[in-house]
Amino acid sequence: MIKRFIDFVDSIKNMNELRRPFYIILVLVVLSDFFVHREHAAFFWDHIPGWSALYGFISCIVIILVSKFIGHEWLLKEEDYYD
């Protein structure tokens, strides 16, 4: 089983082959959000279908860009900084 798993991963030559199934999953996730019952909604945005997808994407971009910006401007040092 483990060997088959390794062979399967090996068979993926590049990331492009994974794109189509990945996009299908993304579409399914957003579509399913239109059909769920929202009884726990506390804020107005909880009623918007696809809100979590949008917010998740924004969060990811914000975290990467902001932390990399702060890191390069200020926090990141050479490895021997403390020596």
Binding site: F22, L26, S32, V36, D46, G56, F57, I61, I64
Partner: peptide
Amino acid sequence: YTGDHVTGSLGILMFTALGFFMLIKRL
């Protein structure tokens, strides 16, 4: 395990993955 919890979480996580693959060079 309510419908909106599950789709909400999947939405956050899968679109985080989208952002990751878009900005992978920066990471």
